[in-house]
Amino acid sequence: MADITSCGHAGTLESSDVLIHIEPSQDIEINLISSVEELYGDDIKALVLEVLEKMNIKAVKVDINDKGALDYVIKARLQTAILRALEDGDKPDWSLL
């Protein structure tokens, strides 16, 4: 599994985007602020968990400030934040993602 040992971030606070910050943690912790939280909060969290699982990450703290981003934007921003936090030798197998 890939260990998150440092912080990473990706995205912006612009409308239809999302700003994601990740940092090391003992387990998986997701803090979500979203302009569409009532409608899509659970979906966003499920998507985050799915991305983490595919990238084989078992422990990380994810802070998400969502401005109504579409699924693939959230996915891409999260993957980028994670890649920025990983060691160079720890890159995932893209074909699986």
């Binding site: 912080c7 971030h9 912006t12 606070l13 612009e14 409308s15 700003l19 910050h21 940092e23 401005k67």
Partner: peptide, 21 residues
């Protein structure tokens, strides 16, 4: 016009890049 959000994005990135969370 949402300029403040871009300014904030820059500032947050500047802070995150310096490991200030």
């Amino acid at each position: 016009e949402g300029l403040i959000l871009t300014v904030m994005t820059y500032l947050l990135n500047a802070a995150y890049n310096r490991d200030r969370k």
